[in-house]
């Protein structure tokens, strides 16, 4: 399938992602922030699709937009709105954060500028139909060990959360 109007959709999705990201940190209402974050995540999923990575896009929607954001909302909904409105929106460390963000941006820009020399000009897109299969081969073949370690780490995190939340098991 050949993509239609590629630049248009690229800029649309990127714009949505950035706008959503800005809204996340500027909204006073935490639920509105979460909704903006969902927009960002969906826009990023769209970008994955444009990069011929449909599997990652699907997982992004299921796991982040469908699963994690619901849990976020779950917690946020129970927070008292009046209290959050009264609280300061940014803490005193914000210049540090801004500096770090600028540094990251500079890094990206320099890689983008100099990267043309480092990376091959254009990678031929892998066949879309076998994308899922390739991911499977990579995850359960080449990177089996790393994958299992990651899942063990997550298991530890789950156990920790259970222990913190429940005194008596």
């Amino acid at each position: 399938m050949t993509p239609v109007a590629t630049p248009f959709f690229f800029y649309l999705l990127s714009g949505l992602a950035i706008a959503g990201g800005l809204l996340v940190i500027t909204r006073r209402n935490a639920v509105h922030s979460a909704l903006a974050l969902i927009v960002t995540l969906l826009a990023v999923a769209g970008l994955y699709l444009m990069l011929y990575a449909p599997f990652v896009a699907g997982v992004q929607i299921i796991v982040y937009a469908g699963g994690i954001m619901v849990l976020f909302l779950f917690v946020i909904m129970l927070v008292s709105l009046e209290r959050t409105i009264k609280e300061r929106q940014f803490n005193r460390m914000w210049p540090v954060g801004l500096f770090a963000a600028c540094a990251l941006l500079a890094l990206f820009m320099s890689v983008f500028a100099k990267g043309r020399a480092l990376f091959p000009d254009r990678v031929p897109p892998p066949p879309e139909a076998s994308n899922t299969q390739q991911i499977g081969v990579m995850l359960y073949g080449n990177y089996m060990f790393a994958f299992e370690i990651a899942s063990l780490l997550l298991l530890v995190a789950i156990l920790g959360a259970v222990i913190m939340a429940k005194k008596r098991i």
Partner: peptide
């Protein structure tokens, strides 16, 4: 009730 770390209102 028994206090936990995740007490809701």
């Amino acid at each position: 009730p028994e206090k936990t770390y995740l007490d809701s209102n």
